[in-house]
Simulated assay, not measured.
Amino acid sequence: MSSNNDFLVGAGVVISTLAATTLLQRPAKANRRRRVPALTTPISRPRPGASVRAAQRLNRAAGMLAASVLADSSVEHYRGSFKNKAMYTPLVVSALTLATSAHGTADRRPFAHRLRDGGYLLAAATGLIGTGFHVYNVTRKVGGFSWQNLFYGAPLGAPMAILLSGLLGFCSERVRETSRSRRPHVFGLPAARTIAAVTAAGLLGTSGEAGLLHFRGAFHNPFMAVPVTLPPLGAAMLFNVAARDPDRTHDRRHRLTRAWMWLLAAMGFAGVGFHAYGVSRNMGGWRNWSQNVLNGPPLPAPPSFTGLSLAGLAALGLMREHPDA
């Protein structure tokens, strides 16, 4: 009887010891499981190649703007019979910028390219000089800065498109050469927020130019109000993104702003269709295309909104992968 009691006591001690050991070990395992994600998933560390991907997106945006300038200046300066030999300059420079952007889009190396830098700076300088020529063209007419001359003189905002193309391309080279351990910057400023602010200013300027020409057309089609309403709202969103604290912007991901940029990109392509319809309404329609393309709404102008929206998306993408950029 005593041996049975001793056996039961011994078994109870062993079972109690095993149970206590199990209970003591469970919290440690649970705590270990909870700590693993915090140690293995850093939030702020960028993924490999983030800077190169952002640079390629900016190259595509610069290329879209350059293509729009190439087509638009070809038509408008041909209509002006290339009276001034300098009118060939934007054709050559925009074609060079388009080729430069294509090269940058295909380049996956995390290094800036000197020839691309030179091409983009040449485009920016061409835009500044071209703006001066267009201002001179308007002021030399009778009446100077009048509605008549602003409507039918050289468009003041047109050369700014090649300026923006060169500026965005130059920024792409600065972003590309940023190593993973550094914050992408342009002229000492956070790259993503700087590009967002530049893009917002470009949207406002392009919308103002469209508003002037659509005002000349008396907004006879209600859709003519779209490019003077949607882009300013997108610009306000980008300015808000550029001004916000990085700690507050990382978690929100700017979903509405990103969706609005895609909307503006689609608006640019849809604008080509509306302008094509405007050409078809002129006498002779597309059968008289050689005259109506010159006198109708400019077909290559709306894609400039697409190029700027692509730049805004590039800035938002860079900001998502580099929260402090």
Rank of each mutant, 00 (worst) to 15 (best):
V13M: 14
V13L: 14
I15M: 12
I15V: 13
I15R: 15
S16P: 07
L23C: 13
L23D: 13
Q25I: 13
P42I: 10
P46L: 03
P48F: 01
P48G: 00
P48A: 01
S51A: 15
A54Q: 11
A54L: 09
Q56V: 00
R57Q: 10
A66G: 10
L70Y: 06
D72K: 03
S73R: 07
S74D: 00
E76C: 01
H77T: 00
H77C: 00
K85R: 12
P90W: 11
L91N: 12
L91Y: 10
V92K: 08
L98F: 13
G104E: 01
G104D: 04
T105R: 07
A112L: 04
A112D: 09
R114W: 08
G119H: 10
Y120C: 07
L122K: 06
A124C: 03
G127V: 14
G127H: 05
G130N: 05
F133T: 03
V138G: 04
R140S: 05
F145H: 00
A158L: 14
A161I: 15
L163I: 10
L163F: 15
L168P: 02
H185M: 13
G188T: 12
A191S: 12
A196H: 13
A196D: 14
A197V: 14
A197P: 10
A201I: 15
L204E: 06
G205Q: 12
A210I: 15
L212A: 12
F219G: 10
N221C: 00
N221Q: 07
M224P: 10
T229E: 05
P231H: 10
A235C: 04
R244C: 06
T249D: 09
D251H: 09
M261G: 02
L264G: 11
G268R: 02
V272D: 01
H275G: 00
A276Y: 07
A276C: 04
V279F: 07
G284V: 06
G285S: 07
N292W: 14
V293P: 04
N295I: 01
P298V: 09
S304K: 11
T306Y: 09
L313S: 03
A314S: 05
L316E: 03
L316T: 01
R320N: 11
